[in-house]
């Protein structure tokens, strides 16, 4: 058996420093490192969802297969188009495990893992903070629940959204079998999707407004802090 793993990450906006980009996406990359005792050879692909740059640190990693939607699609795609695109991409490439982040800088990205699992008819767990190999093709995952920290066994194929992996990364390395590719752009045509559907939806995407900004008070004395605390 070969484990086919797909990571869904956001590209780095040109204006954002790499360190900040890493804070949202590192948790997914770190979880790959935590797949300790996985006995299968592993092929890792990364799909980048938003407009921006692919960080140098990932391009220089030879074992990752990097994918992104074609450039003219990046601007037009709504969340539904992206979901359609990813569903086709996962079906055609027969991935076993999809890891995405439960946080992110775009509206839809934190929920992509769950929605994708629904489209693929897979099971899904969100806010996962640890994953490790158990037996056969099952893995143990740990996540928060209303009653406490829940550990549950999952069977592949599965979609997981990662939130805050354990603070100490495990250094065990996975056995890679495939050499990675450089970033490959995929158009809807490559996946057999009608491009006109995407153009049509783009025109009717719901409007988005910025969140209202609250006033940020500057308190320079202890008495002002007490006053602020009492007012709020």
């Amino acid at each position: 058996m070969k484990l086919k793993l797909l990571l869904i990450l956001e590209k780095k906006p040109a204006t954002l420093i790499e360190e900040k980009w890493m804070s949202a996406n590192l948790q997914v990359l770190q979880t790959v490192d935590n797949l300790k005792n996985n006995p299968f050879p592993c092929s890792i692909s990364i799909f980048f969802t938003r407009k921006g740059l692919v960080p140098e640190s990932l391009i220089s990693e030879k074992n990752y297969n990097l994918y992104s939607p074609s450039k003219n699609m990046e601007d037009k795609m709504t969340s539904f188009d992206l979901l359609l695109f990813l569903t086709e991409f996962c079906t055609q490439n027969k991935y076993d495990l999809v890891l995405s982040s439960a946080s992110g800088s775009s509206q839809f990205f934190p929920y992509l893992g769950g929605a994708l699992a629904a489209k693929l008819d897979w099971n899904h767990v969100s806010c996962v903070n640890n994953i490790e190999y158990s037996e056969k093709n099952s893995y143990l995952i740990t996540r928060n629940s209303s009653s406490g920290t829940l550990t549950q066994s999952i069977e592949l194929p599965f979609s997981i959204s990662i939130s805050d992996p354990p603070p100490i990364p495990n250094n065990s390395k996975l056995d890679f079998v495939d050499p990675g590719n450089k970033l490959k752009r995929i158009s809807p045509k490559d996946l057999g999707i009608d491009e006109d559907i995407i153009k049509f939806r783009y025109k009717f995407a719901p409007p988005v407004e910025p969140l209202p900004k609250y006033s940020v008070a500057k308190l320079n004395s202890v008495s002002k802090v007490f006053k602020w605390l009492q007012e709020n």
């Binding site: 979901l83 769950g114 929605a115 994708l116 699992a117 629904a118 899904h124 629940s145 209303s146």
Partner: peptide, 16 residues
């Protein structure tokens, strides 16, 4: 609740 973050995206994917 924590489960709503799991059920919400999944169900929205199912019912568009």
């Amino acid at each position: 609740t924590p489960f709503s973050y799991e059920l919400g995206p999944w169900l929205s994917g199912k019912i568009n």
